[in-house]
Design a protein around this nucleic acid. Structure first.
Lengths: 122, 122
DNA sequence: ACTATATTTCCAATATTATGGAAATGTCAA
DNA sequence: TTGACATTTCCATAATATTGGAAATATAGT
């Protein structure tokens, strides 16, 4: 039997309003959102800068700029593997963002957003 | 027993990537996020521009600019009531954003973001 | 050391966004 | 129709973000 994940993958720190703005801004750009989506699909291994550049047809310096923005917001992380630098999505951070928005959206009035019972998940 | 909402409050249209960027951008600014949060708390009646301006201490023209941005992204809506203009949060739109992010984050690998079973809600 | 490849930093041009005073508009009451 | 109030539009300024070529840095193979 293939136990997938006994508990949360990474620690989920709640987002402050300022931080939430930063994460939102990091995703509020077409190329960056495309990068993030690409990385979600790439999974845990992530994808190298070159692979991303080719897939999304973005010039190196432009890609590098956006990768840095995403990393600054901690919505992605990177590791070097010999000559390649692999980037990977930070799911915990995305989850924290979703949780922040859920609180923002539903704080006090969950019924309006998610029906009479709120969300299943705490 | 107090049945709160039999079904969804508003129709929830799924977000396109471009639209998602627009909604993200509309919230990716401190003042605008504060406005939105204020409106969530204000509830269905919403809050007038003046009320918001006073509460958040934002000059009229600046507020007006941000309200327009939020409205352009359809994350809030407005109605005039005699001399006042009331703004109110569009919960359905926020939900659509959250759903978009959830798909983006978890599409293919829900276990990574939300534990081995995904979210309770569809 | 030299070469090739991957990626980044530097930098300057361009584009977009945010800010708020002054003036315009819209609404109502007298 | 004048006056008071709420809000917006106009507009100039300032701040921030995006873009990509050229040059720099990092790593590995020969």
């Amino acid at each position: 039997m293939l136990r997938v994940k006994p508990k949360r993958a990474e620690t989920t720190a709640a987002l402050e309003s300022k931080e939430a703005v930063a994460v939102l801004a990091s995703l509020a750009q077409e190329t960056r959102l495309a990068i993030f989506r690409h990385l979600v699909i790439a999974g845990d291994e992530g994808a190298s800068a070159g692979t991303i550049a080719t897939a999304l047809e973005v010039p190196g310096p432009t890609l590098s700029f956006h990768l840095k923005e995403l990393e600054r917001a901690a919505i992605i992380s990177s590791r070097r593997e010999s000559r390649l630098i692999y980037y990977k999505a930070n799911y915990a951070r995305m989850r924290a963002l979703i949780d922040f928005l859920t609180e923002d959206c539903c704080g006090g009035r969950p019924e309006v957003c998610f029906g009479s019972k709120g969300r299943g998940r705490k």
